[in-house]
Design a binder for these strands. Structure first.
Lengths: 150, 150
DNA sequence: TTCCTTGCAAACGATTTGCATTGGA
DNA sequence: TCCAATGCAAATCGTTTGCAAGGAA
């Protein structure tokens, strides 16, 4: 997938929010900018620090909720159960995660088209066998990174 | 992997806890029994309902903490950020999860030997390409279950 | 004006902890 | 006996919500 420029991403987000009939306000734009600068998923607390100027945590959560509901960002919970947010895959591309068991570092990994196709077939088969209509999948590879392997 | 009988699992757990120098008490045994009956990860609230008789939620959390720390059970957080627990893979075998987008239900899924082998190869390749020594992987299939699909 | 959005403070709910009591080796 | 384990209640903390004020169309 071609990676979009910062400007293009804001443009895409604006359109998506327009479709959802909500405004692309300063606060919401600040969240997208922060996540764009971030090199991985960030918690609400971390985003407060990334955003320029003071932002009430409750307003931030509301911005995050709107962006999440309109599909601009994704939300998941880390091992401590804290919510972490990142730009949605349609903006930054479908990918998986390589997690280091030692240092906890998380890297994005994009599979080759062939690999992704094979995985897709596999998860479709799994869903079918259980009577589910498959909508997506998450693959996390665990291991020890080169730095920690010393 | 051969699946162990309920009795054998309790035996294994007892030994593991003995190594950790903690007792295999009635409350802890009840948790293992409940998770054995469950066919997927369960939250603390759900486990309270699965266990026979009344169990204070705080005591349950303490049992879960002990079992988690000694590697008898695993813990992860669902899409709502709620902690879910399940018996560790060394007791019940390696498997993946099928998650319903609507109701949040989670079911265990064991791939066929051939599928698991293919997945294994894939994740090894991913790890190699990033300089990681792969230790494991997690695959989560997302979709809508038959009940919610109406 | 008319709603959507924001800020502040209070409320929520899952999980944890302090402390006194109980129970098993 | 003696200390781990338990029960109860209070505390924590990330997150959500009620309500009044601000702002854009």
């Amino acid at each position: 997938m071609e990676s979009l420029t910062s400007h293009e991403i804001h443009q895409q987000v604006r359109e998506r929010l327009a479709d959802a009939e909500v405004r692309y306000t300063t606060g919401r734009r600040a969240v997208v900018t922060a996540l764009l600068r971030a090199r991985g998923p960030r918690s609400a607390g971390e985003i407060v620090d990334l955003v320029v100027g003071a932002v009430p945590i409750s307003s931030l959560y509301r911005s995050l909720a709107v962006l999440d509901e309109s599909g601009v960002i994704g939300k998941h919970h880390d091992v401590d159960g804290i919510a972490r947010f990142e730009l949605a895959e349609w903006l930054v591309g479908h990918h998986h995660h390589m997690v280091c068991d030692r240092c906890g570092n998380v890297e994005d990994v994009a599979l080759s088209g062939h690999e992704e196709d094979a995985l897709h077939e596999l998860v479709d088969r799994v869903g079918d066998s259980l009577g589910y209509t498959v909508s997506g999948h998450v693959l996390e590879v665990e291991g020890v990174c080169a730095t920690c392997a010393v």
